[in-house]
Amino acid sequence: MTLLTPHLILVALAALWTLIAATVLLILLSHALRRGRSRHREELDRRARPLVVRFALAEEDDPALEGTLARASGAFGDRVDERLLSVLETLRGDSRERIVALLVDRGHPPRLRRRARSRRTTVRAAALRRLGQLALPTDEDLIRGATADPSPVVAAIAIRAAASYPGRASVAAALERLRGRGEVPALVVVTSLIAQGAASADALAAIREGLVDPSSRVRAACAQTLGELTSTADAAALGRLLRRDPTPGVQLAAATALERVGRASAVPALLDGTRSPWGPVRTHSLLALLALPREVTAAALAEVARRPDPLLTPLLAAQPAPPSPEAHP
């Protein structure tokens, strides 16, 4: 044990407890800073909130109020911007336009564009989120470009913001991110695609083309999106995907989509799906069958009921009992 000299032990002891003391100090400092900032922000919000609400709800123009809000600067100005943006999410039509005009008048968009190029991830992400809320035509390329940001957080925010510019290019940008390492949550991409597909025929066409993409994540996202857009026109393509796609994840997405957009023509594919070795695929294929009228699925459901499958039995049993003939006059 000559290695453990008294000197070494005492140095290790002193270093360790110094580190502990420093960490304790760091925790207390961090806590004090956070609480201080939070209190300051609450105070500023208390001043900004009534002004913004009055402006948003005003039936007629109030130049004095508008002037006060337009001149707000510094930390208070930031809170005014923040309150205006949070109100923006809940408004449509003229009220929304007035708030966007006020934010432009306050010089907010140029500040956001500068911040969107910041080296700090959180600053970039926050700026892009706000630019997406404003949805100014000049920012379309900036937001679409940010979907390729090296930070998955920034990219996810940009994909969500890109939904404000629905079209083929925005769909392509969102799907491109899915081809990567999968760091962007698929749900964010699907939500963006749903918004775009509902707003633009071009976007919808691009999403349909995604069903034959070489990437399985892209195919799955497009299938999920088409299911949400409730267009039975895609039932046949989704049925093909459920039957023939080699990736179970895509089969599951197709089966889930068919729960909402199924048609009688998809019944054979769904029946095949109930035999899949993958539990969730079986479950959702059956749920899709159950969502269709009994007239077209009776034979398929009878076949499923004949097969003992503990995953599917509770689903069949959970269905309401068919009305008995005596119950009808």
Partner: peptide, 13 residues
């Protein structure tokens, strides 16, 4: 920070 829980709460996915 990027996940909007409302997305999950309302998503049929």
């Amino acid at each position: 920070s990027v996940l909007d829980l409302a997305e999950t709460a309302t998503s049929p996915v």
